[in-house]
Nucleic acid binder design. Structure first.
Length: 881
RNA sequence: GCCCUCGUGGCGGAAUCGGUAGACGCAACGGACUUAAAAUCCGUCGGCCACAAGCCGUGCCGGUUCGAGUCCGGCCGAGGGCACCA
């Protein structure tokens, strides 16, 4: 302990006396320099220590960090630092989801190649991440637009082709006829191209698909064994995969000399005797066949191509149909059944055809009423009366079969079993499980993405690029102009020779969906420096990811694709596990209030909340909001997600510049539990900053009074013992809140309470200052994962030579937690009436006696007979009269 | 339409396994310091009541329990996901 005193003396000697003012800029630069010089966050494989792979979803390099990033990465950083202090070998990497459409849009706007824009953004955002002090291993940084990364997309794609997991078929895209280009769904606005305003067409082109549907049963089944994932996310994925059990039913037909069977999937095979028509999708072969015979049918099929592109609009568009004039035979009754084309029938689900049972399906009912088709009741429920006048909800319920010949009287389950058996006997159907999930089309007619490694040869067709020719390099100097994919006009890129026959050939210009890039990057962090293999043995050490943190908006696509790719790699022998993320944490979004004015004519004008002043009444309630510039009122549009369009964003950089990274980190962790939405509050930021200033001052005041040599000893006074107890209670609570509950807000609140107690405590006796020293050390250690810079500085000031980053997480001292007497509350008939002090070890009888002796309790009990006394040891007594 | 969350002071939120409702912070109000402002410090802060005592109070109605913000049933409201899925 003398060493501490000496060290302090030396510091004084060299003039490095503690600043009385908290200066975040200096403190943060110093701490970051230390971590950098000591290479604190470079993770090295070490089988002797438990590993902890802590991963936050990597950002798209859009230009600068937004508040959502700050929140996401702070949560990850708190966990990484906490686990590190708890003895884990922590890996926390970072990279860039660097391909994608925004780069092409920026390129068009500025005339700069997407590569240049992307790399500039990465450089800027990397500086911002460093300024926030995240404990990242930057040696493992990767960007998905680098050939060193995307070559393995191409390599694995070729393996998938070999394994039959990747395949080619025609797919429907949104086609802009003016720009001669394919549009992403979000580029189609009200059925028109976003740039040209031209009516968008649906066009069929050859595309590559990944057979994710092969993995659907496993992707769904495994959800039941993922306790580390939020229930909500698992429910959303299950919903998306959409398993549906039913029966495939065949309707035989003859078209001239050709005999065929029209198959339809149904979950209501019990209603099969109520079929009065069949409806097929406009793209169905039978519809195509009918269109050749009848120009009116052809016109109808053509009109369906111009339907809306957005799924929500498809769902609400009017049901339309046309009779093909063809008919099929009912597989069980043999009756003829007319075939219609319906714009509500999806080619991509089931068989692209439905059996029409108007009596018991609401859509079929509506369709039949519109086109005058027969409605035949075949299900009865509780003997209720059926009428074809209007649809009633019970028509769709399960019941017993009627008017169904051999099936009459059967309930839902039995009827389906009987129908399936009869169909199987005739070779016209069987039980079938259908999935909502479709195969993943990965072809994008875009420039800024990973080239699909295929060569088109006039003689040999589509030929895979040989492994030794990988990567297929994407030229980085092209500037798209909106009229199609610039790769398709780039002779250097296009020209190649066929690997099979050696003839001149043409390179595939489609690129991969950017979701491919993000489906395996978490594996690559383990070995991002390996130039000769996609993965190596280090993956075995680090993976799977112990904790994944990201936004709920990725609950379905990204997380499902990542689970799928991991399974593919497992099947191909690359990894041994199927689930990439053991624990998933979905953080809430960052919200802010929206302020606007709506002129009588013209567009709504949005004002940033920083330009708006809130006026309050004497009780503190909001009166009105006015614009600072002119003092006139503005309207509030409520509290919503921060966005550019609503002008309600807060720039993290401005926050860091004014208050420092620690204040930004503290506020985002304190304002709300991390899973819930976080409402922005400038006053709240001030409050966080104020707390750090108070923390600094508390340490300053303590240190200025001289060094404390000895640890807290026996013989402390009541007040000192109480403070010491609270310090250790706080430590225990923070350990649980951060380590188990992940409620950083309550952990911070507990430390605030401790600091309030320290401020109230007046050291008097000899050992008192040692208790203050210990309390401050506990506060600093507890806060260090959240505000690592200021605590780094304060730890030094408290006399420690070893840097805070290397300190182990402390354990609460059981002796400090013990107390002689405890307070228990006393209820009479469940209502709080008194508090009494009892010895800590008091038994139930003693607690009961103490409660009944209390004068207030006696007053409330009065002359009544005590019927029962409930005693909760150490907590509460309830007297029931 | 189906599925999933969530409703607690003026505000963000706390109450972890059914046991003290409102921790912590913000705002507001009163005071100290200051020529003044900022910063800082002290105090008040769910409602009724002059105070105390007491009563009421966690969206609404009911239930279970000695005891319900917490569990169960029904309703109302907000948010999110899926959505012509046969």
């Amino acid at each position: 302990m003398l060493r501490i005193a000496e060290a302090r003396h030396l510091k004084v000697f060299f003039g490095a006396i503690m600043q009385d003012r908290y200066d975040p800029a200096a403190v943060e630069a110093d701490a970051q320099r230390h971590w950098e010089e000591q290479r604190c966050f470079e993770a090295v494989e070490d089988p002797s220590r438990p590993k902890y792979y802590c991963l936050s979803m990597f950002p798209y390099p859009s230009g600068k960090l937004h508040m959502g990033h700050v929140r996401n990465y702070t949560i990850g950083d708190v966990l990484a630092r906490f686990m590190r202090m708890n003895g884990h070998n922590v890996l926390q990497p970072m990279g860039w989801d660097a391909f994608g459409l925004p780069a092409e849009n920026a390129a068009m706007a500025n005339g700069v190649p997407p590569a240049r824009w992307t790399y500039d953004n990465i450089a800027h955002m990397k500086r911002q991440l460093k300024a926030l002090g995240f404990a990242l291993d930057w040696r493992r940084e990767l960007a998905t637009c680098q050939p060193e990364y995307y070559r393995w997309n191409q390599w694995l794609f070729l393996r998938m082709l070999e394994a039959g997991i990747a395949y080619q078929k025609t797919g429907v895209v949104n086609w802009d006829p003016v720009d001669q280009t394919v549009l992403a769904n979000e580029q189609v606005i009200d059925g028109r191209g976003w740039r040209t305003g031209a009516l968008v067409e649906k066009r069929e082109i050859p595309m590559y698909y990944l057979r994710i549907t092969d993995f659907a049963p496993d992707l769904l089944g495994a959800l039941g064994e993922m306790p580390g994932w939020p229930e909500r996310v698992r429910a959303m994925q299950a919903n998306w995969i959409g398993r549906s059990e039913g029966v495939r039913i065949g309707f035989p037909y003859e078209l001239g000399a050709e005999r065929g069977v029209l198959y339809a999937f149904t979950t209501r095979a019990d209603t099969v005797m109520g079929v009065t028509f069949c409806a097929v999708a406009p793209e169905h072969p039978l519809a195509q066949h009918a269109a050749l015979r009848d120009p009116k049918v052809a016109a109808f099929v053509e009109s369906c191509k111009h339907g809306p592109a957005i799924e929500a609009e498809i769902a609400t568009q009017e049901k339309r149909g046309i009779d093909t004039g063809l008919s099929v035979r009912h597989p069980l009754s043999g009756e003829p059944v007319p075939v219609w084309i319906g714009n509500y029938v999806l080619m991509t689900y089931g068989e692209g055809a439905v059996m029409g049972v108007p009596a018991h399906d609401e859509r079929d009912f509506e369709f039949a009423k519109k086109y005058g088709l027969r409605i035949r009741q075949v299900i009865s429920v509780d003997g209720r009366d059926y009428s074809t006048d209007a649809w009633q909800p019970w028509y769709g319920e399960h019941g017993r079969c009627v008017n169904s010949g051999p099936y009459d009287g059967l309930d839902f389950e039995r009827a389906i079993a009987a129908v399936a058996a009869d169909l199987a006997h005739r070779g016209l159907g069987e039980r079938q499980t259908t999935w909502r999930l479709r195969d993943w089309g990965i072809s994008r007619q875009r420039y800024w993405g990973c080239p699909i490694p295929i060569i088109h040869c006039a003689a040999c067709g589509a030929v895979p690029v040989p492994d030794e020719q990988l990567p297929v390099l994407l030229p980085e100097d092209l500037v798209p102009d909106g009229s199609g994919n610039p790769l398709a006009r780039d002779a250097r890129f296009l020209a190649c020779t066929c690997p099979k026959c050696g003839a001149a050939a043409r390179r595939e210009t489609d690129t991969m969906d950017t979701f491919v890039d993000s489906s395996w990057y978490f594996l690559r962090y383990a070995c991002s420096d390996n130039a000769s293999a996609m993965l190596d043995e280090r993956v075995r050490y680090w993976l799977p990811v112990d904790q994944y943190i990201g936004g709920i908006e990725h609950a379905i696509l990204h997380l499902l694709y990542a689970r799928f790719w991991t399974r593919v790699i497992k099947r191909l022998g690359g990894v041994e596990f199927a689930e990439p993320f053991t624990n998933l944490f979905t953080q809430g979004m960052v919200l802010n209030e929206v302020f606007f004015r709506k002129p009588e004519s013209g567009r709504i004008q949005y004002f940033n909340p920083a330009e708006v002043e809130l006026r309050r009444d004497a009780s503190g309630a909001r009166q009105e909001a006015v614009l600072r510039a002119d003092g006139l009122p503005v309207e509030s549009g409520g509290v919503v997600t921060m966005s550019k369009s609503k002008n309600n964003g807060v720039d993290p950089q401005a926050l860091v510049d004014e208050f420092g990274a620690d204040t930004a980190r503290l506020f985002t962790m304190f304002a709300a539990p991390p899973e819930q939405t976080l409402e922005w509050s400038d006053e709240g930021v001030q409050g966080a900053f104020r707390f750090l200033k108070r923390l600094w001052k508390a340490v300053y005041d303590h240190v200025s009074a001289g060094a404390v040599a000895q640890p807290p000893r026996e013989g402390l006074g009541d007040a000192a013992r109480a403070l010491r107890r609270q310090a250790h209670q706080t430590l225990a609570k923070v350990t649980d809140d951060v380590g188990r509950r992940r409620t950083f807000n309550t952990a911070i609140a507990a430390v605030m309470e401790l600091m309030n107690a320290v401020a109230r405590f007046e050291p008097a006796a000899a050992g008192d200052r040692a208790v203050v020293q210990e309390s401050l050390e506990i506060a600093v250690l507890c806060l260090s994962p959240i505000v690592p810079h200021v605590t780094h500085a304060l730890w030094r000031e408290l006399g420690h030579e070893r840097a805070l980053i290397d300190e182990p997480w402390p354990r609460a001292d059981e002796a400090a937690l013990s107390q002689d007497t405890i307070e228990i509350v006393v209820q009479v008939n469940g209502k709080l009436r008194a508090r009494v002090a009892v010895p800590a070890g008091a038994d139930q009888e003693a607690a009961r006696a103490a409660a009944l002796a209390d004068p207030t309790v006696r007053k409330f009990v009065g002359d009544a007979v005590i019927r029962k006394v409930v005693v909760v040891p150490g907590k509460l007594v309830n007297v029931v009269v």
